[in-house]
C-alpha cells in the first residue's frame, strides 16, 4: 500500500499533465465551435510545456542562477534546476502566441464571410 502511494506521489504530476492535454484534445475534436477549438489548442500546448518544465525539476534544487563561485568550479549541478528545458520552453511559449494570433485572425476572417463560428453552420453556407 505504501509502495503504491510512493509510486503515485512520484508520478501524479505526469497524470495531471495527461489529463490537461486530453481536456484540450477533447475540445479540439468534439466541439463544433471554432473558438472552443482554439481554446483547446491553447490548453493542449500549455500541458506539453508543463510536462517539459517538470523534467527540469530536482528535489531540493534551487534556481539556476550562479555567482562568482562558479568561476572557481564551486557549482553542484544536482542542486540547481536544469536550465535547458526552461530556455526551450520560453521559445515554445512565443511560438504558441504566434500560432494563437494567426488562428484568431483566421477566425475573424471566417466570421466576416460566414457570420458564424459553428462548424456545421459554416459547412451549410460553404
Amino acid at each position: 500500500m505504501t509502495e503504491l502511494l510512493a509510486y503515485a506521489a512520484a508520478r501524479y504530476n505526469y497524470w495531471v499533465y495527461i489529463l490537461l492535454m486530453l481536456i484540450g484534445f477533447y475540445a479540439m475534436v468534439a466541439h463544433g465551435n471554432l473558438l472552443k477549438k482554439v481554446i483547446g489548442m491553447n490548453i493542449f500546448q500549455t500541458a506539453i510545456i508543463l510536462f517539459f518544465l517538470s523534467t527540469s525539476a530536482k528535489r531540493g534544487g534551487t534556481l539556476p542562477i550562479v555567482g562568482p563561485e562558479a568561476l572557481a568550479g564551486g557549482v553542484a549541478p544536482a542542486q540547481l534546476m536544469n536550465p535547458l528545458p526552461h530556455a526551450l520552453m520560453l521559445t515554445a511559449i512565443v511560438v504558441m502566441v504566434a500560432t494563437l494570433g494567426v488562428a484568431l485572425a483566421v477566425l475573424v476572417k471566417i466570421y466576416r464571410r460566414y457570420r458564424s463560428f459553428e462548424e456545421d453552420v459554416i459547412l451549410d453556407r460553404l
Binding site: 510545456i49 518544465l53 517538470s54 527540469s56 525539476a57 534544487g61 534551487t62 534556481l63 539556476p64 534546476m81 528545458p85 526552461h86 530556455a87 520552453m89 520560453l90 511559449i93
Partner: peptide, 8 residues
Amino acid sequence: AGMGAVDV
C-alpha cells in the same frame, strides 16, 4: 514559479 522555472 513553484517548480523553479521563474523565467518561463
